[in-house]
Design a binder for these strands. Structure first.
Lengths: 250, 250
DNA sequence: CCATATTTGTCCGTATGTATT
DNA sequence: GAATACATACGGACAAATATG
């Protein structure tokens, strides 16, 4: 028999656990209210400071929001990706997670998104993609800011077509982090116009693949595009980690 | 010009911000200590409760750890993926998330993990996989509990071989949630033995693909295995959402 | 629109168990 | 083993903010 080391469980942690359990089990849904702090201290049998520490933890975790003077009590918030973004950003900044890993994951996700979108898209979504393409083309003349926004809009349509929330959210988060990490390098490059037109050409190719519902091709093209666009920023010795996702290199 | 709505900035938030800044900027490194709570209240010019609420938030964010009676003060922790795990978990088990989406994401992730692992694995990791396979084979006789544990061990080796934290963490989370959702149905099935031996056969196939470094094959087999094992539990009308990931069905 | 009651945000003081020196 | 400094937890208090009648 093996024994586990025990860490003392703080009072506020038990409060947090109970509230989290209530939310996860569905007994408390988004939009509903928690009792007031004074009510909670009687229900849990702890002091107000303890209740408040628990509420701060829950708030930092994105579970609740509380306003001063609101007699309805703290509000249960719907699940949101902001905390996923924060924790991922922290790992990236601490260099615990390399740009290589982020790009690998982005290639993986975005490629799969295109694979699914090509098969599952509706004709209406294809039309949306076409207008988004046109918008990107004109935005490329307007400048990097505009172009970037149009690019994001395009990706959002793709993500929606997959009908998978996790793909949508993780894709957004990872794309955002990658941009945060190398946006300055990118926007200061003197060959921005060349980059934009290359990016645009890639989109055109992948759009055609989605149009004819060739998922495998769309996936390969998307991954290749990310690789071509960003691999300059990953250390040479790390690049082999990305090759398996290109589907061609041996 | 657009204006943003302003939210009042609480005292404890400013304390959190300053400490986070100190950590992110590198002025405070992992292993170093924060001043004691009493010291912090004088430096920040706030009360003890405010300092404590800030420390709770930092602790919940995985930035620090504090023990009672430690005169050295709260310890700065190295960046770790546990928070990524937590926020991913929260997101993935939101009530809006269907089993179909989770399985789709799991097929996507696990397939890619095998694709990468087949190419990037070392000979040492292959040996580990072989012993894990053997352990699974004997565990299949011992019962469902043992078998499940051995299965997890196998997947952990695969995930490690990808060298990608995001794949590891997201894989763990999604696998765990899928099991939570249908574990009871699975463990009460009367054909548990048949399920286990089928699962074992699948692992043997995919192991062989990893052995000969055929990433594409390993990916296809892994996705097919998940589909075969779980698709009974997804609504019939949702199953087409999973087909594109099988790579064969048209 | 105003008045009121309630709630949160913040502060202070105190008692207790704990870890380091 | 004793002394010291610390975190944990409690209770009381006041001001600012807010919803409600």
């Amino acid at each position: 028999m093996e024994f586990e080391p025990v860490a003392p469980v703080r009072a506020y942690e038990r409060v947090v656990e109970q509230v989290e359990q209530a939310v996860f089990s569905g007994r408390l849904k988004a939009g509903e209210r928690l009792p007031s702090e004074r009510e909670l201290m009687t229900q849990f049998g702890v002091s107000r400071s303890t209740v408040r520490e628990a509420l701060r933890v829950l708030q930092a975790g994105g579970m609740i929001r509380s306003k001063p003077g609101d007699p309805r009590g703290p509000e249960i918030l719907p699940a949101s990706p902001v905390n996923l973004h924060k924790s991922m950003h922290r790992l990236a900044r601490a260099e615990t997670m390399s740009l290589t890993e982020l790009l690998q994951f982005r290639m993986l996700l975005e490629g799969s998104a295109y694979l699914l979108a090509a098969r599952l898209r509706t004709d209406e979504q294809l039309a949306e993609l076409e207008t988004a393409m046109a918008a990107m083309t004109v935005a490329a003349e307007a400048g990097y800011e505009e172009f970037s926004r149009a690019d994001i809009a395009f990706h959002e349509i793709i993500a929606r077509a997959t009908q998978n929330t996790l793909i949508v959210v993780c894709g957004e988060v990872v794309r955002g982090i990658v941009l945060d990490l190398i946006e300055d390098k990118l926007s200061h490059a003197d060959d921005r116009r060349a980059l934009m037109s290359a990016w645009l050409a890639h989109h055109r190719e992948v759009f055609d693949a989605v149009r004819v519902r060739d998922g495998e091709l769309a996936q390969r093209l998307a991954r290749r595009a990310i690789f071509d666009h960003y691999s300059d920023y990953v250390p040479v010795r790390d690049r082999p980690l990305l090759f398996p996702l290109l589907g061609t290199a041996e």
